[in-house]
């Protein structure tokens, strides 16, 4: 236990990085997901194809491989950013593919009449997506999005492999020093579980809200 308490500053620092990465990459993933889903259900064949290839590629590659490639490969094509920034962008792009898929199944769950009615009222594609389809789709995908958020939080731990000192890396370092794996890793695990529990709580609240709003 003392191994945990003696190193609280390190753990705290790691947790802060984890939270920052989670927040930033989830926002990024949401933006990516929205763009991709709009492309995927939209009228332009090329964009549909690009979006499909994007989703298929990213869902079929291990995040760890993407991270290593981005951190060491991108500087070779002249794109160099900090390790944490690179990791955030990669995780956002990766989880964006999952968000796009969740949104798409939400869009597909909206009855065809809704889109037709929106069009009959003269709304354009963008307008009917923004004002009619997505708001309804969102309420059905709150739960899946919450799950993606939890998965994303877990996935930030992989950034440890490319030099980002987030919670898992911090725990690993403390363990290297103290050799007390049980309290150290269980402590880190509890921190992740707490983040996920918050996410679960929030999605529950939002889901109820939206359910009433309909």
């Amino acid at each position: 236990m003392s191994a945990l308490l003696d190193h609280l500053p390190e753990f705290w620092q790691g947790l802060v990085v984890t939270l920052q990465m989670t927040a930033a990459s989830f926002l990024g993933a949401a933006a990516v997901g929205l763009v991709i889903v709009a492309m995927r259900v939209g009228p332009v064949p090329v964009l549909r194809a690009v979006a499909t290839v994007y989703v298929e590629t990213l869902q079929n590659l291990p995040l760890l491989v993407l991270l290593v490639l981005a951190v060491f490969g991108l500087p070779e094509i002249g794109l160099k950013a900090g390790l944490t920034t690179t990791a955030i962008v990669v995780i956002a792009l990766y989880e964006g593919a999952y968000i796009a898929e969740a949104l798409r199944s939400g869009v597909n769950a909206i009855s065809a009449g809704q889109g037709e009615a929106a069009r009959a009222l003269g709304l354009t594609f963008g307008q009917s997506l923004r004002h009619v389809v997505l708001p309804q789709a969102l309420s059905t995908v709150v739960q899946p999005l919450g799950n993606i958020f939890i998965a994303l939080t877990m996935n930030t731990s992989l950034a440890a492999a490319v030099g980002v000192v987030e919670l898992t890396a911090a725990a690993n370092r403390v363990n290297l020093l103290e050799a007390q794996p049980i309290p150290i890793f269980v402590g880190a695990g509890l921190a992740y579980a707490a983040v996920a529990a918050c996410a679960g709580f929030v999605t529950g609240r939002i889901e109820r809200r939206l359910a009433v709003a309909r």
Partner: peptide, 11 residues
């Protein structure tokens, strides 16, 4: 900052 292996560190 740490990386998994020697080639990663060199890179």
């Amino acid at each position: 900052i740490t990386f998994g292996g020697d080639p990663e560190c060199v890179q």
